[in-house]
Design a protein around this nucleic acid. Structure first.
Lengths: 216, 216
DNA sequence: ATCTCTGATGTCAGTGACTGCACTCAGGTA
DNA sequence: TACCTGAGTGCAGTCACTGACATCAGAGAT
């Protein structure tokens, strides 16, 4: 038997998530989180750098997974496709905890200060992807841009996955978003033709959200 | 004669910039900034929501410029190119204050908490671009992705512009970065051939923009 | 000339995030 | 037995940020 309950870190994360959801991020104090976890404020700050970080810790395995998948892509694979394959492979990570992911996403969406943290974490993922590509010999503007593009795809895919009433797999949303990105950057997407009966939103395989030029 | 010195906001911004550069962001207190501007801490917080915001206020005109340029692009222009045209048009804004932009950029690069704020401001620019595209009739996954892609281009262009020893125009860096993005998302960039004569193939118009770093 | 209203600023007294430093104490090891 | 270590605690302090209220020059009204 040890002196303290085990899993202090997980207890803190759980307590924080509960309290942020119950009464809001701003209305929750760190002391309250610590108390619910059976610890003190001082201990909270030993585990997490600040009040926001408690929602973002633990991204290490995701970084490793992406690094690994990019490294293992066939030699002939283009950078953007190696990145896409890595993102698709991360599907399992999210599918496993769909509900948690949704709750966390809603929380972040409601608080700008949490969005800031989310964005810098995503930038860090982009950097991981770029670095993995460099190890494959991809040179720099391309490596950086493939990483950034991958994260743009990831964000859009995540958003539509979270809200997908059909609960289709995350990897499917990644493929659709990538298709949409390729169409957009190829200049294949334009304004709709004059009558504009377009159905907004949604996310088809995305390729043809297009007509061909013109209209008012 | 008015009761107070005019331009309180500008004085605060200038004082903050000076102090952050002189002794670092963390080592500067808001009270010190206010004092240097001849005001009190309380007044600082009337002008800026927090200690970071003083470096980011005043983005309104840039948003308006981008919105306007996207709106005015010819009907036949593809979304990604309308966005690129808007970014190129913003060149003047940066060229006018090259030194200030460099100093500010160095400051942000050295402080993660400032990067967070920078990222959310860029996300807001992406949203502005996406909204301007929607007004042109572009539907949603495409509008969002064109906005995000534009910001990825913007970031890369800004970075290489700031470090460009040849001091070429910002708009030129935008064009090069856009070319690199198009090559990457078209899958035209791959690892170098076996003998590795470096220089990734197919990065056509912009492949070798900003060659800081290369491969790994 | 005085009156009043307004807007920019100041004063003051908080709250709570975060930090440095010294301390406790069960369990393992020499 | 004595010592060390690792996980957590206690405490005092700094500073970002806020709400409530006070001040006071100048503009316009009377």
């Amino acid at each position: 038997m040890s002196r303290w309950e085990p899993n202090a870190l997980e207890r803190l994360q759980r307590a924080a998530m509960e309290l942020y959801r119950e009464r809001g991020f701003d209305e929750t104090t760190v002391a309250e989180i610590a108390a619910r976890a059976g610890l003190t404020e001082r201990t909270f700050f030993r585990y997490f750098a600040d009040k926001r970080e408690v929602l973002f810790a633990g991204a290490g395995p995701l970084h490793e997974l992406l690094r690994d998948k990019v490294a293992r892509a066939p030699d002939s694979t283009a950078p953007i496709d190696a990145v896409a394959a890595a993102l698709e492979a991360s599907s399992a990570v999210f599918e496993e905890r769909r509900d948690f992911a949704r709750q966390r996403h809603a929380l972040i969406a409601a608080h700008p200060e949490l969005q800031e943290r989310e964005l810098i974490k995503l930038a860090s993922l982009a950097a991981t992807l770029a670095e993995a590509l460099r190890r494959r010999g991809v040179t720099d503007p391309a490596a950086i841009l493939a990483g950034e593009a991958g994260i743009a795809v990831f964000r859009l895919a995540f958003e539509s996955w979270v809200h997908d009433p059909k609960r289709r797999d995350f990897s499917r949303h990644v493929r659709e978003s990538l298709g949409a990105l390729k169409a957009v950057t190829a200049g294949k997407v334009t304004r709709p033709a004059a009558p504009s009966t377009s159905r907004a939103r949604g996310a088809s395989p995305a390729g043809r959200a297009s007509g061909r030029r013109s209209s008012g």
